[in-house]
Design a protein around this nucleic acid. Structure first.
Lengths: 213, 213
DNA sequence: GCTGATATGATGCAACCGCATCGGAAAGTT
DNA sequence: AACTTTCCGATGCGGTTGCATCATATCAGC
């Protein structure tokens, strides 16, 4: 038998190259040739890993959505249950909103894929599933906060999560474009979380009242 | 002197063709040849109107952002001041969120330009200005509602507007991808508006309590 | 009714795209 | 060592891209 190769590892490596190029040169930058060069392999290797370019993009998108949602779960699992639901939800939202400078790469990639998904249904499906997962995660966090008595139990967790999801997505897009908000994006999130609290703090000090880390 | 043509009119006509193509064939569909054919003019005519393709895209983006914000203002001007601030804000948000089927075209175009703006600063600047205008419009509406006594006057209108803006943007993106929310997007908006009310309705009937039209 | 400036549309061009193909290198079996 | 099978990198191909060029059609002024 000839030389054997771990295709799954290679696929992941190529997917990383795809993300790098989309980040640096925009949505159009991910050509097969450039991807191959970025990944340090030949163009033929890329073609053997993915039957078509769309398949390559779909794999890369699946990878990055899983990575982002995994980061969201990390915030929870790493807490060892000793942290409050407010802290958990705040940290999770900040992670998912991709507003920190070090998350700019992920934000650009997601924006590029969102626009591309307009024309490619398979990509749209991946994004839909990712958003549904995120929403369910947020709903779970809210219910958890209700159990701990931190959040108002007259709230419908599913409804609140359905509001937080577009808020997070919108913050990502605005931050990516360099939108200069009158108030920092993370304050917008904490203000929103205040609305969930059992004893909401009064406006004016709400942003700092739930400050974390 | 030879035949004279109204260049501004032609530029607008071509910009419309650009939007049509982006809507139908995605962000990549706006090639010079296809744009010319869609507009019913020759390729040379397109090139004479715009020095470069990016300039053409920037003009088209400027046009569509102005059109969308104008629709937002229309909701207000057409009201002859006899409508409540709640009704006005609700109608404006629904218009700007681009969630109705007939707005799908605008939503796709905006998504495509948002992703493209990642790589082209001039486009990003246009979008930044558009978002700032939208935010200021929302802040104005909230202050108006505070004057009429409909909205809580302990709220900072600017802060609330800074929350509504990403919410609207996020709803646009999610609706475009075909996200199936557990609750309709326009209910999410009305629920959010409820939070601004002087006497907020209790959860469970909030969505219907501010129903309009 | 010339004349000449100007708008026009077709064509050319170099570069790049995604995808297909193919000769040969590499590795395990006998 | 010879063979077979799998993988690899390079090259080719048809098509498309944005942009430049150029002969022609068109109209105001004399």
């Amino acid at each position: 038998m000839p030389k054997q190769v771990d295709y799954e590892t290679r696929r992941r490596h190529i997917a990383e190259a795809v993300c790098d190029l989309i980040d640096r040169h925009g949505p159009e930058g991910a050509t097969l040739r450039d991807v191959a060069q970025q990944a340090g392999v030949s163009m033929g290797a890329v073609q053997r890993c993915f039957a078509t370019k769309d398949e390559m993009l779909a794999f890369a998108l699946h990878r990055i959505t899983e990575r982002i949602t995994a980061q969201g779960h990390e915030e929870i699992n790493a807490s060892t249950a000793k942290e409050s639901a407010v802290t958990l939800l705040t940290a999770t939202l900040r992670t998912l909103a991709l507003i920190e400078p070090h998350q700019r790469r992920d934000a650009r990639i997601m924006a590029a894929f969102t626009a591309h998904a307009t024309a490619i249904p398979s990509l749209a499906e991946i994004l839909r599933q990712a958003h549904a997962k995120t929403r369910d995660l947020l709903a779970w966090l809210i219910r958890y906060g209700q159990q701990t008595g931190e959040f108002r139990d007259d709230l419908d967790a599913a409804l609140e999560a359905e509001t937080l999801l577009p808020l997070v997505e919108g913050l990502t897009a605005l931050a990516l474009l360099g939108h200069r908000p009158t108030v920092p994006a993370h304050d917008t999130l904490t203000r929103r979380i205040d609305g969930l609290l059992m004893q909401p703090s009064r406006p004016g000090r709400s942003a700092s009242s739930t400050a974390i880390v």
